[in-house]
Each structure stands twice: as structure tokens, then as C-alpha cells.
Simulated scan of single mutants.
Amino acid sequence: MNRITVVPAKGRAVPDPETGELLPAEGRDVPDDTYWRRRLLDGDVVTPTPTAKEATTK
């Protein structure tokens, strides 16, 4: 299964069904499934944007 990287949106605490804990503030890779797609659509999580340094090193 594909995976995506997500971080909680500012001011949000998002349960992670895979670990049974809250999604850490630094985010993590999660399954690209309906649960996480719904969290993205609801604005509970966001996908991190690469910093300028990360973008130039790839």
C-alpha cells in the first residue's frame, strides 16, 4: 500500500489508528487510505511542503 507523509494542522490533535496514539507534531508516514484522505479533506492534517534547501538537493 502507498504511504503519505502528514502532520497535524495547527491546533489539531489527530488520533492515529495504526499506533493508537495521537499523530506526533513532526508528523509521520501513514497509509494512503480513506481515513487519512478524509483527515486531509477535513483540514485535520496537512502534507508538509519541502523547505527550499530540501527542494534544491533533490
Rank of each mutant, 00 (worst) to 15 (best):
P8Y: 04
P15K: 04
A13M: 13
P15Y: 08
V6Q: 05
E26F: 08
V6D: 02
T5P: 00
A55N: 01
K10F: 05
E54C: 02
R28P: 03
T5K: 15
A9K: 10
R37F: 03
K53N: 02
D16G: 07
D32R: 13
R38S: 15
D33R: 06
D16P: 10
T57N: 08
E21Y: 08
P48R: 12
V7D: 01
R3C: 02
I4Q: 06
E21P: 00
T57M: 05
L40A: 07
T56P: 00
E54S: 07
D44E: 15
P8W: 06
P50G: 04
V14Y: 06
P17F: 06
L41H: 06
T34G: 01
L22Y: 14
P31G: 04
V14F: 09
K10H: 06
D29P: 13
Y35E: 12
L40N: 07
R39Y: 01
K58S: 04
E18Y: 00
A25C: 01
K53F: 05
T19M: 10
N2K: 12
R28K: 15
L22K: 08
A52N: 03
P24Q: 11
E26G: 10
T47W: 01
V45R: 02
P8M: 05
R28H: 04
P8F: 06
T49P: 00
K58W: 02
V45G: 03
P50N: 05
L23T: 02
L40I: 10
K53M: 03
P48Y: 07
P48G: 08
M1C: 03
A13K: 14
A9F: 01
V6Y: 06
W36H: 03
V14T: 08
E54M: 06
N2A: 13
V30S: 10
P15M: 05
K53S: 08
L40W: 06
P17E: 15
T19F: 10
K58A: 07
P17A: 15
E18P: 00
A9N: 12
D32Q: 12
D16M: 03
